[in-house]
Design a protein around this nucleic acid. Structure first.
Lengths: 131, 131
DNA sequence: GTTTGACCTAGAGTCGGCTCTAGCTTCTAC
DNA sequence: GTAGAAGCTAGAGCCGACTCTAGGTCAAAC
């Protein structure tokens, strides 16, 4: 059985039906969505899988135009691996940079948390150090 | 030396002067900015340091309202460590969640890159791909 | 036979986070 | 004394990524 309504896809991807239609307009699907009775969209498992990829890319901050570009390459079929690698490697750089930022922030938080916990611990003779 | 113009602060924080004024309006400074001749803002090192904190929090996705809230707590002075910890721990959760997402994405990228590199390897004698 | 619920389209609205503009002042250097 | 750089305010504009609305179709359940 592979014939999912937009509602079912929304349910299993976690995207809203609005967003699913929006993503389609934005060209984030590797194939045109089939239509059933009354023009209703009919998705299959491949669509859901691909949306899973898109969701991960989005969650890591890839902009929609980049996802569209990658989707187009995939849609075009084999033979453009070099371009696909270009896109993915470019994004990997950004992901690594983000991880670095998050790490920095985590250090900051840990530092501040230690200070505040310290202050709470010795509540009485509090020296006013850093904010 | 402590008496920096907005331009100097922009230079050493990497924020634009527009953004500096915007952040001020948004309440992201722990103290009202002093004014010099002709109403020009005069920052000191503490301001720059605090902006550094804000920048890290922003870079890790903390929304401006949350940064403002934290700033207000700091501005209020000692005695609200519990609330500060609440804010920071809340954000730490989100940072960890983001790291998880990035990690997932990195796995995906690594996987796909391996596939494409593999395909390119098999096609080495096909004169169709640029360096 | 009508109500309910899921779907459709085109297009408008929202929100966060900047970013820029217009019109003005003030200082420094030529 | 005038040109240029840097600053000021209030407010408008922009961009990305959704999110929602209005007005309609259709099938099944009551």
């Amino acid at each position: 059985m592979s014939g999912l309504s937009i509602g079912q896809v929304a349910e299993r991807t976690g995207l809203s039906v609005h967003t699913l239609r929006f993503y389609e307009r934005e060209g984030l699907l590797t194939q045109p969505v089939r239509r059933g009775t009354a023009g209703h969209r009919v998705y299959n498992q491949d669509d859901v899988d691909w949306l899973g990829v898109c969701i991960r890319l989005r969650a890591s901050g890839m902009p929609l135009p980049d996802i569209r570009r990658y989707t187009e390459l995939v849609r075009a079929g084999q033979g453009n691996e070099v371009e696909r690698l270009e896109v993915l490697r470019g994004h990997r750089e950004r992901v690594l940079a983000q991880m670095h930022d998050l790490d920095e922030c985590l250090k900051l938080i840990t530092h501040k948390v230690a200070i505040y916990e310290g202050r709470l611990g010795l509540r009485d003779n509090v020296p006013d150090c850093a904010p």
